[in-house]
Structures are given as structure tokens and as C-alpha cells.
Computed example of a mutant assay.
Amino acid sequence: MFNATAANATAGPAGPPPWYQFPVCAAAPWAFVFYFGVKVLNLAVGAPGNALVIWRIGSGRSDATTSDVFILNLAVLDGFFCLMTPVDMGNRLLLDDQRVWYLQRFSYGLKDLAPLFLVCICLDRYVAVVHPLLFTRIRGNAVRVAASAAVWVLVLVYGLAKSTLGVASVSEVFGAAVLSALCVMLFCNVAVVWALRRCVAGKEALHPVKRRALRTVLTALAIVVALYLPPVALMPFASYYGFVVFRCRVSVSVFAIMDLSCSVEPLLFIARKDRAGGGGGCCGRHLPGDHAPEL
């Protein structure tokens, strides 16, 4: 995995490694241009975007939803990762300090398990749409705060393990986490679509609130499939690539794509909030626990 392999790719006592990390990558450095370009994008767009998300949720706007607890935690995680960009680039390009690499691997570990918060968002919308009575009983934020705390414990333990023990010690955990997240999100999407289908089959008006709930789970699933799944899908085929192709092109590109989520997620949230309109319930009733029309 590129995010940690470069920590070992030093150029010896003569100085730090080249900006393309491996001397053999000099002939094909364009993936590294893309990687560093994503880093700069995250600092320029992702950091203020996540700060805006934190501000909008923290300001207690009237269009808040129960899922905002998880979105807030995801924005904090992504914001921290974006703010690590100067440290990451400075150490890769100039310092190559092994002590700083511990902090970098820790931040990579946090980012690896960010999909767990997307899973929480999907489960929250699934319960709201499919099990409204249960959702009414757990409408308070206490359950969501406890779930977020549990996710943070897992994320921090994983990040510390990746920082101190290296990538090899957690690579299988990363793959299992992303694949598990994908399975849970697929289940939530199918269940929500089936619930909406019953609404339509009963000739009841499909209210925009539930349509937004469907868009929420579909968006979370799309983020995981498009941005987090490629590194996992790549792992079984790593041995089929030559060193130059894998380390200089493929792995750099897929991890840069994963890092893009730091900018994509807040932009999607802001766009969804700005696009949200008024409304009531679905199939003649409000979704329980959502005191505002927006999901």
C-alpha cells in the first residue's frame, strides 16, 4: 500500500527520496502528480468544506436530522486528514523523518475506517424508513452519540495499530471493513427501495422526504463503491503487477482516489442541504424523529 510503503523508500543518507518516491518511477511519475494534486485539493476544498459542514451542524439549523450526528463526526475525521496535507507533503518531499511517518500512518488509519460513519448514516435512514416505530423510541441523540463513540474507538485503535505496527498488520482489517460496509449499505439500499416500492404499489404519494432518505443511502453507497472499494479490489491482484506498474502507477492512483472523498463528502452534504425543500411525511405521515423536512 502506497500510504505506508513510501515510509521505507528512502534514498539513504544523501537526502530524502525524490518527489516520485522511488527512483525507478522517474520514467512514469504522473500518478504522483495526481496524488499530490488531490492532496492540494483536499487542503483547498476539503478542509474549508468540512469546516463549513461542522459549522452548519453545530449552529443548530432548523433543517437538522438525526443522521447529522454521524455526518458531524465524519466531517471532523475528514477535516483532520485534510489538515495533515502540509505535514504529509513536507515529510514526503523534504524531511523524510521516520518519527513524522508515525503521525502520517495514524492519519491514514483514521481515513481507512471513515466508511464506518457512512454505514451508521445508512443504518439510521434504514431504521427511519423501514422501522418507524423503533425509530421513534430511539429518536434521541444518545444512541447515535454512543454509536459514534464506539466507531471512534475502533478507528483510533486501528490508526494506532497502523502507525506503530505498519500497514501489513492491518491491511486485511481494512479490506474486511470496506467489504462489510459495502454489504451493510447494499442491504440498507435494498430494504429502503422495497419499502418505497410498497408505498408506490399502494398508490400512496411518495413524499420527497423519503426520496431524500433514498438519496442519502444511495449517495453513501456510491461513495464507498467509487472511492473506497478500488484499493480493496486491487489487493488480490497486487502480485500480478510489476513493481514499477504497481508502485508507480496503480497503487498511487487508487489511494489518491480514496483521499478524494475528503472533498467529495462535504460538497455533497452542502449541496443536499441547499437543495432541500419543505415537506411533510411519506405515505401520509412524517418520518419519526425528523423534526424538520430534510433527511
Rank of each mutant, 00 (worst) to 15 (best):
Asp96Ala: 15
Gly90Ser: 05
Arg272Gly: 15
Ser163Arg: 01
Ala142Val: 13
Ser163Trp: 04
Arg197Asn: 12
Ala142Gly: 10
Lys39Pro: 02
Phe2Thr: 10
Cys25Ala: 12
Val193Asn: 06
Phe22Asn: 06
Gly15Ser: 05
Asp63Leu: 10
Pro266Glu: 01
Asp78Phe: 15
Pro13Leu: 13
Phe255Cys: 02
Ile71Asp: 05
Asn73Val: 09
Ala205Cys: 04
Trp30Lys: 01
Cys188Glu: 06
Arg137Cys: 08
Gln98Asp: 10
Gly280Ala: 12
Val245Cys: 01
Lys111Trp: 13
Thr216Gln: 06
Ala75Pro: 09
Val252His: 03
Leu77Tyr: 01
Ala27Asp: 14
Val245Lys: 00
Val173Asp: 04
Trp152Phe: 11
Cys82Tyr: 00
Ala256Cys: 07
Gly277Lys: 04
Ala27Glu: 14
Pro236Ser: 00
Ala75Gly: 06
Lys203Val: 11
Val190Arg: 10
Pro231Gln: 01
Leu74Asp: 05
Glu294Val: 09
Val38Trp: 03
Tyr108Asp: 13
Leu52His: 03
Ala47Lys: 00
Pro29Arg: 00
Ile270Leu: 15
Ala9Trp: 14
Ile270His: 03
Leu182Ala: 13
Gly37Met: 05
Ala256His: 01
Arg198Asp: 15
Asp112Gly: 06
Ala147Tyr: 03
Leu41Pro: 08
Leu221Pro: 08
Asp68Gln: 06
Cys283His: 09
Asn141Pro: 08
Leu94Glu: 02
Ile71Phe: 13
Leu116Phe: 05
Ser171Asn: 07
Val232Ala: 02
Ala75Thr: 06
Arg125Phe: 10
Asp124Lys: 00
Cys283Glu: 14
Ala27Met: 08
Pro13Asp: 12
Arg272Cys: 14
Arg139Gln: 14
Ala7Asn: 10
Leu221Trp: 13
His207Asp: 13
Trp194Pro: 01
Gly284Trp: 08
Pro13Asn: 11
Pro208Trp: 00
Trp19Gly: 11
Gly79Met: 03
Ala128Asn: 02
Pro230Tyr: 04
Glu265Cys: 13
Val151Ser: 05
Pro23Ser: 04
